[in-house]
Amino acid sequence: MLGSRKQQYWLYGVLAVALVAVIAPFVWMVLGSFKTTGELRQSPPTWWPETATLDNYTQLFARLDFGGYFTNSIVVATAVTAGNLVFCSMLGYALAMLDFRGKRALFVVVMTTLMIPGVVTFVPLFVLVANAGLVDTLPGLFLPFLVSPFGVFLMRQFILGLPRDLVDAGRVDGAGELRIYWRIILPLCGPALATLGILTFLGSWNNFLWPLVVAQTEQSYTLPVALALYSTGQNSTQYGLLLAGATVVVLPVLVVFMIFQRRFIEGIATTGIK
């Protein structure tokens, strides 16, 4: 380990203070979901609920067909995450380790679209999906997001950092390129895949505007769309419902993060690049 005992204690101290500052809003969000609307409007705000109540949650679940929305969200986020992990790592490997015609152009085009603000392609994309008859279907919700320039960039940068000898050794052993990708490179990409998986899942899980517009009936709503239904009014916001909804949305993400976090550590152990 780095540094002496004393240094370690210092570091723990600094990190602990930082941790408290960093998680405070999260804690407040969870505590806030147990408060009444009246208490949430108070100024200055309270930390502990004065009269803790489950009303926000009971209201939320009584009014919503929770299971259906949850399933939709899971299907969409899983499809999007799987698509990104597979397709982006494939191209990322090709861009990082292989030589081929058009490689540079492809990379430049991918990087270019990464920089275009999403709001500008929103309407043309919706018209496209509508013309393809995908409105109000689950594929309409996930197909446009199966690949992302961000994912390619992330995978390329990570694979660039892997020793090139691995590929050459594979070739000497007579393995084909696809086999090298699948058998040699991908197993080493644990940490990067975990990172991409977390970020993609999170992005898809929280996506609001696209599912709102594509889903035309409540049957294909995702969780964030459904949870937004009753919390915001025309002129007022029901903060209690809003915070309860936000907490409900965040829980699955926390679980995913904790699972991938372990993969992270396994990544260190199994790759052998200590």
């Binding site: 999260f26 999170l202 949305v249 993400v253």
Partner: peptide
């Protein structure tokens, strides 16, 4: 902070 709702 990354996963906390922007409203909160």
């Amino acid at each position: 902070p990354v996963i906390t709702s922007i409203v909160a």
